[in-house]
Design a protein around this nucleic acid. Structure first.
Length: 491
RNA sequence: CGGGGUGUAGCGUAGUCCGGUAUCGCGCCUGCUUUGGGAGCAGGAGGCCGUAGGUUCGAAUCCUGCCACCCCGACCA
């Protein structure tokens, strides 16, 4: 087979870029740091959106849409929020262009300066809480459970396709509650939605945890996250759910009258996942032959390739193939029948392989004669002959087996890449030799965390929610610690 | 944003030091033979050499600005 992929071994980041490009998911655009998500990449995002959106609706949320522009004054209200985002904001200062006096193109019309500059949203808490003030008077107006699907802009200095781009697509949920308990429950509920989505749809095992103060969302009281491990041993934050306390309610003056007739500030949460998940999907499952997609998120789950020598055979084979196609479709499987005569079967095999289609069915004259087909699965690259009778159920079972296998493979990779370190030397050695998640004791101070980051580039990914208390000594400072936290180098 | 590198046909490249409008492979088009893992042969099309200036009789080549991408750092939910 012709090889035009870099391997993970040779150059992991080139391998990643090759997959994005050659699987036709995205390309760089004329604008620095921004990518064009191509139809194939976008259809994966649509599959993710579909599954997540249903989960949001099932947990009582509704979609809405808020402006992309945020007045600068809104943005500056919450101190920590400003601190976190100010350095990466795109700002609109003018609203008109005019012809240049020298006749060479367009220039900004200085007479069209905005009285108040507009920030292009890096996240929408401020505009949303400014809006919620008008929506909430009484406890009867609560809770508000809103999600928006949107683009956001964060002016990143260094970008990578899907993982970090200046503009990206995401969803952001913003909820308002009458009590702290209810807001905390919402935060936990949405974290569960994310972990369920990651594990059941993406087939990526994740660890639920709490962020340390250093890694917390700017403006949150507490940030919860799901952390996944990529094949190069680096961690990836796959989703976050924030308990915002009354921080935004206070600065935007969002009060309500409770059942006792007293005024109180509203409790808030926000939560989001982005197109970064596509990067996670690539790095969790793909191999040196290209993309590998879990069936539940594959835009096409099965491709059928006809094999023939002449036009008579072509027609005979295609007739049989179409029968199979319609059986599979009736079973709810997404199928592409590639009857193009402009490409040879071998070419198609390779094409669908590096695009990660979970199952390929090849059917030729010999198969028609024997009433069978050749079935190849992308995850293991194994081929097997299937009798056509009951093909739809056999394929449905196979898809589900592939989904499970991908999850199990990713899980055992993570288990094999998870280590405990009890000394500083051990910790450094593990990081350099193997990467992965390292459970280690930490004294709980931001200073120690910062020092460890400076010396090793490893950060505390999270304090796992299911953590067991365990007395020990901080690997860096030697000070007492009550539990292990997860360290890793991260994307 | 700092340091380094790159930019030549859709993609990957030679040519750049030592100025004379461009090489090769893949892909594309046409025809014939092919079709169970990226087909073969023959013919053909396609490039103001990233962009804007400058030097020169003449610039892909030398000089300057700008843009984009890659690597390293800083930064970063």
């Amino acid at each position: 087979m012709a090889k035009d992929f870099s391997t993970r071994e040779e150059n992991y980041s080139k391998w990643y870029n090759d997959i994005v490009q050659k699987a036709d998911m995205a390309e760089n655009s004329a604008v620095r740091g921004c990518m064009v998500i191509k139809p194939y990449g976008y259809s994966i995002w649509e599959k993710m959106q579909g599954a997540l959106d249903k989960m949001f609706k099932d947990t009582g949320h509704s979609n809405a849409y808020f402006p992309i522009f945020i007045p600068k004054s809104f943005f500056s209200k919450e101190a920590a929020h400003v601190e976190g985002f100010a350095k990466e904001c795109a700002v609109v200062t003018h609203y008109r262009l005019k012809n240049s006096p020298d006749g060479k193109g367009l220039i900004v019309d200085e007479n069209a300066k905005l009285e108040e500059e507009l920030i292009i949203r890096p996240t929408s808490e401020t505009i949303i809480w400014d809006t919620y003030r008008g929506w909430i008077q009484s406890y009867r107006d609560l809770p508000i459970l809103v999600n928006q699907w949107a683009n956001v802009v964060r002016w990143e200095m260094r970008t990578r396709m899907f993982l970090r781009t200046a503009e990206f697509l995401w969803q952001e949920g913003h909820t308002a509650h009458a009590t702290e308990t209810e807001a905390l429950e919402e935060t936990a509920k949405m974290l569960d939605v994310y972990s369920t989505f990651a594990e059941e749809f993406m087939a990526v095992p994740v660890i639920k945890g709490i962020k340390t103060a250093n890694e917390r969302f700017a403006g949150a009281v507490e940030t919860f996250c799901i952390e996944a491990l990529m094949q190069d041993g680096k961690a990836l934050q796959a989703g976050t759910s924030h308990f915002l306390g009354q921080n935004f309610a206070k600065v935007f003056d969002v009060k309500f009258t409770n059942q006792e007739g007293k005024q109180d500030y509203v409790w808030a949460t926000s939560w989001g996942v982005s197109t970064r998940l596509i990067g996670a999907l690539i790095m969790a499952h793909s191999d040196d032959n290209g993309l590998v997609l879990p069936p539940k998120l594959a835009p096409t789950q099965v491709v059928i390739v006809p094999i023939y020598k002449d036009q008579d055979q072509y027609e005979m084979v295609c007739n049989k193939a179409r029968e199979i196609e319609s059986k599979l479709k009736a079973r709810g499987i997404s199928v592409k029948f590639d009857d193009r005569q402009t490409h040879k079967p071998g070419w198609k095999f390779n094409e669908y392989e590096f695009k990660g289609i979970p199952v390929r069915i090849a059917i030729g004259p010999r198969d028609v004669e024997n009433n069978c087909v050749e079935v190849a699965r992308r995850d293991t690259l194994e081929k097997e002959s299937y009798q056509i009778s009951d093909i739809e159920n056999k394929i449905a079972n196979l898809l589900s087996a592939i989904q499970d296998n991908l999850y199990q493979k990713a899980l055992s990779f993570r288990e094999n890449s998870t280590h405990h370190a009890d000394t500083w030397d051990e910790f450094c050695k593990l990081l350099d030799d193997k990467g992965g998640f390292i459970y280690a004791h930490w004294d709980g101070t931001a200073e120690t965390e910062q020092k460890i980051k400076e010396e090793t580039k490893a950060t505390i990914r999270c304090i796992p929610l299911n953590n067991k208390p365990e007395a020990g000594k901080c690997i860096y400072s030697g000070n007492p610690s009550t539990q292990r936290v997860i360290f890793a180098r991260a994307y």
